[in-house]
Structures are given as structure tokens and as C-alpha cells.
Amino acid sequence: MEYRQPLTLAEALRLLRDAVAPVRLLAGGTDLIPLMREVSSRPATLIDLKSIAELSELSLHADGSAVIGAALPAIKVTGNQALQRLWPGVVESIAMMGSRQIQSRATLGGNICHGSPAADTVPALIAAGARCRICSIQGERMVPVNEVITSPGKTCLRQGEILVSVHLPPRPPRSADAYLRITPRQKMDVAVAGVAINLILADDSVVERCTVALGAVAPVAFAVPEVSEIMTGNVIDEAMVARLQRAIRQACRPIDDLRGTAEYRTHVAGVLAVRAFKQTLQRALERKP
């Protein structure tokens, strides 16, 4: 196996274009290294992205938007207090990527590109309306996070492309997000169900826009457009919350496995949705103009 450690994005893209296949990109390696213990999963070329400054930056802007480098260690994201205030749900999801030791290596880009149906960060990013900057020798494109993972373990990235950064949109007043999940064990386990909510209020009691995304209850994480139809422009009351819960359960398409039955996943997704909505609402009310 040939190991390469480029110092710039341009160098990495050239190496990726010219490398002997199969090629794997190393960001944090917390998913890749265990896979490489199997002979069948060992690449001919391993390109380490950790030394590329552009992939390890975190920038916040006055309008509340943010850019998170795909190879930035998770612990540097969760430790940023300004980002926590603006995007608490996104930060919560990143904080669930294993132990502190794992988070010192694990990256947001790696969590997305691994393509797990139960990846914690993906529902939170979908709800947030985040986009991924994907680059190749030919140029770059911006892809919504909900279009990046196409099936379990598969992404839309083409040959020669690298996920460079994740872009969060501007954050208006009276808005917030939250991410909740349930696992068989309290920590460091794969989600049985995960729910992310991003809420923007028109005033203290009327929803301007609400996006809900689910993880671990279908082959890929996905947004639930029915929720937006139920909530947008309407007054928040118990009837609305009940409709939200029903819509979430109807949208679930889970499987039975060792961590939980399809029936259980569907039920708890509805419970988590109500809890996440109430938490997001409280946060949004605290962010008044």
C-alpha cells in the first residue's frame, strides 16, 4: 500500500487522479482503519487529508452561517461556543460521534462519506439545510446533504472528487435546532432512531418554517416534507404537535435488527420528534431579535 500526505487540496486532487486504484481517502480514520483490517478492504493507495489546511478550518460569519472543514476533528467543532449557540442541534449530533478519544480524530466529512443510515450528523445537517462543497480537478459543486448519501455505504461522490467542507446557511432570529437519538446503550452506540428539527418562528406562536429529518429508520437519512406542510404558517398548539408525531411515524421505513424492531423504531421516532420539537421551540424563543 502506498501512503501519501498532500499539503494542499490541489495536490490531493492530482494524487487522487493519478493514484493506483483502489484509492481510499483518510480524514479521521475511525471508520476506515477498522475496515482496512480486512484484506479485501485494503486500498492500493491511501491519501491522508489531515494536513490540508482548507479541510481543517472552521469559519463563522455575521449572518450565522458557518463552514466546517471536512477533515476538522469533531472535538474542535463541539468546543466552539459560538457555533454551539448558533447551531446547537448540529453540534449535539457531532458530539455523539463516539468517545472524546474518538472525537479527537473523527471528522464530519468522514461521518457523511461513510454513508451509515444511523450516522448522527446527517439528519441534523439535512434539517439545517446544509450543503457539501465537493471538488475535483475539473471544478467544484455544492450538493445538499440530503443528496450526498444515495444508499447504505454509498455516496454521490464521483471518481476523483473530495468532500472539502460542509456549509450551514444563515441563522435568522427566532430560530434554533435540536437533535435527539436513542441507543441500546447510553453512549458510544449506534442510533436506533434519530430525529433532527430546525425551526424558524414568525413570532412567538407561529411557525415560519420547520424541517424535520430522520435517521436510522430508513436506508438513508431523509427529511419529512409532510411536517413542513403541517406546520408552516400555523399556530403552535397541542393538535399541531400531535399531527407532527403522526407524520413522523408514518414516514418511518425501518428494519428489524439486533438493536430494535421496526415497530419499536417507529414508536420512539415519534416520541423523539415531540421532545426535539419542544426543545427547539424553547431555544428559538430564547433567540429573539
Rank of each mutant, 00 (worst) to 15 (best):
G79S: 02
T78V: 15
A71D: 03
S104A: 13
V77E: 04
G98R: 01
S99C: 09
E57P: 09
S56D: 03
L108Q: 11
W87Y: 03
S99H: 14
P73A: 01
M96F: 10
L60F: 02
S65Y: 02
I94N: 02
S93P: 08
C113A: 13
P117A: 07
H114Y: 11
I75E: 14
V67C: 08
L86D: 08
G64A: 00
S65R: 02
V67I: 13
G115D: 14
D63S: 03
E57G: 09
V90F: 00
L86N: 05
P73F: 00
G109D: 10
I102P: 10
S65C: 06
S56F: 06
I102W: 11
A62R: 05
G79P: 02
C113M: 14
G79L: 01
G69I: 12
M97L: 15
V90P: 01
P88V: 01
L60T: 04
H114Q: 13
G89W: 00
H61P: 05
R100S: 15
C113H: 12
A82Q: 09
A70Q: 06
N111F: 13
P88T: 00
I68R: 10
L83S: 02
S116I: 11
E92K: 12
A66W: 01
Q81F: 12
I75H: 12
I75Q: 15
Q101Y: 09
G69K: 03
G115A: 10
A106Y: 06
A74C: 15
G89Q: 05
R85A: 13
L86S: 12
N80P: 13
L83N: 01
A70F: 02
E92C: 06
N111W: 13
A82S: 14
P88Q: 01
V91K: 00
V77H: 06
G98L: 02
G98P: 07
G64E: 04
I112S: 07
R105F: 15
S65M: 05
W87D: 04
G115S: 15
E92Q: 15
G79W: 01
A118D: 13
S65K: 07
K76A: 09
W87P: 11
T107D: 05
A62D: 10
V90R: 01
G89D: 02
K76L: 09
Q103F: 04
M97T: 05
R85I: 08
A62M: 03
A70K: 05
S59A: 14
A82W: 11
A74N: 11
V91T: 03
I94P: 11
P73I: 05
L86V: 11
E57H: 12
V91I: 04
A66E: 01
R85P: 05
E57A: 12
P73M: 02
M96W: 13
K76N: 12
A106H: 04
Q101G: 12
C113W: 09
T107S: 10
G79E: 03
I68P: 10
A71C: 07
V91C: 00
C113S: 10
K76Y: 12
S99M: 10
